[in-house]
Design a binder for these strands. Structure first.
Lengths: 182, 182
DNA sequence: CCCACGTGAGACACAGTTGTCTCAATTTAG
DNA sequence: CTAAATTGAGACAACTGTGTCTCACGTGGG
């Protein structure tokens, strides 16, 4: 049967986010392949972790592109960002978690680029008088990633319905950061 | 010199939250003791993890008590809760993260009790017409833990000033969940 | 000053995991 | 149907981390 590299990396990210100490054998089982096959495609645990980090960065960047966060009304851009990020919340949780499974410069750089774009969106909203100034863009970024990751876990744990998750994150996040409220 | 059990567990929690794969030697170094001493006080990695989980549960419960979250105005109770939880955000991040370093029933039970009290606070606020109904207590709990944990990391990373962290969490959280807006 | 207690350092045996390899079985493509 | 490609299973060597132990050293109390 065919080896679905992307699916294996998704499964690996999901497991490693919850159990960073998972062995290669456990990862292989979670991905539905054998340990030998995993080793054929990734020459070592380190290579596997780097590959899933790189895929995560790539897919997150694609989601930001799809959300067109540099365009239009910042409030709507934040909503689109949340909507688009949900399907890759597993990768976001992995990358954001900084669980130090990786210490790869190119992943740090990739993450920094993503963070910069999101931070710029929050700053843009503040400059337009839409978002509160007293909540720093740095904090708003951290909060957003934490809520998206948390919602991914909540969906996985059945605590939140998948179709509700973007709205729940969006309402809480935007409700807290919009200006013009008491 | 004296062995400060609580400080060692705090240091261990801080390291393990960021690096779940940290070895006993790394944990010992982070705590400023030798691996032999760590093994003298905790008969194994498993015992250490259980001990820090138990301490975390105990201290979080004490913080909830100090915050008196069952009393008075729910909005003020949430503020007090956030304020009191900040000093133990490291333990919260560890327990909430469910990184599966532990699978100890008594820790799960302890966490479930804490979660129940926090959930009851959100429900009480909803019943009094103060908090939005469309954001479930389950989600509000997850979001709160995620934001408190994130703020702990942000302080540690220098992205947020320690004195600002409770306010940042509180404004975002309460701003998003209060009724009578937009 | 002396003794008891506790720690750090390091050695050592053991267990688990990793990485590699081989072979049989399965799948896929022609 | 056949051949090539790929996978699963398991063996094996090497490596890492754990848990235990011993000894020397430092600290504190009497």
């Amino acid at each position: 049967m065919t080896f679905d590299r992307e699916q294996v990396l998704r499964d690996a990210a999901a497991l490693l986010t919850r159990k960073a100490t998972a062995s290669m054998d456990e990862i292989a089982k979670a991905a539905g392949v054998s340990r030998a096959t995993l080793h054929r495609h990734f020459p070592g645990r380190d290579a596997l972790v780097r590959a899933l980090g790189a895929l995560g960065i790539e897919q997150l960047a694609e989601r930001l592109d799809a959300a067109r966060i540099e365009e239009g009304d910042p409030v709507e851009a934040v909503r689109r960002l949340i909507e688009e990020a949900m399907p890759v919340s597993g990768f976001l949780a992995f990358l954001y978690g900084e669980n130090q499974l990786y210490a790869v410069e190119e992943l740090d750089e990739g993450w920094a680029r993503i963070d910069k774009r999101v931070s710029a969106l929050f700053r843009r909203g503040q400059e337009q008088g839409l978002f509160r100034y007293d909540l720093s863009p740095a904090w708003l970024c951290e909060a957003l990633y934490a809520l998206i990751a948390a919602s991914g876990w909540s969906v996985q744990d059945g605590k939140v319905a998948s179709r509700d998750s973007a709205r729940m994150v969006g309402e809480l996040m935007l409700g807290g950061m919009l200006r013009g409220r008491s």
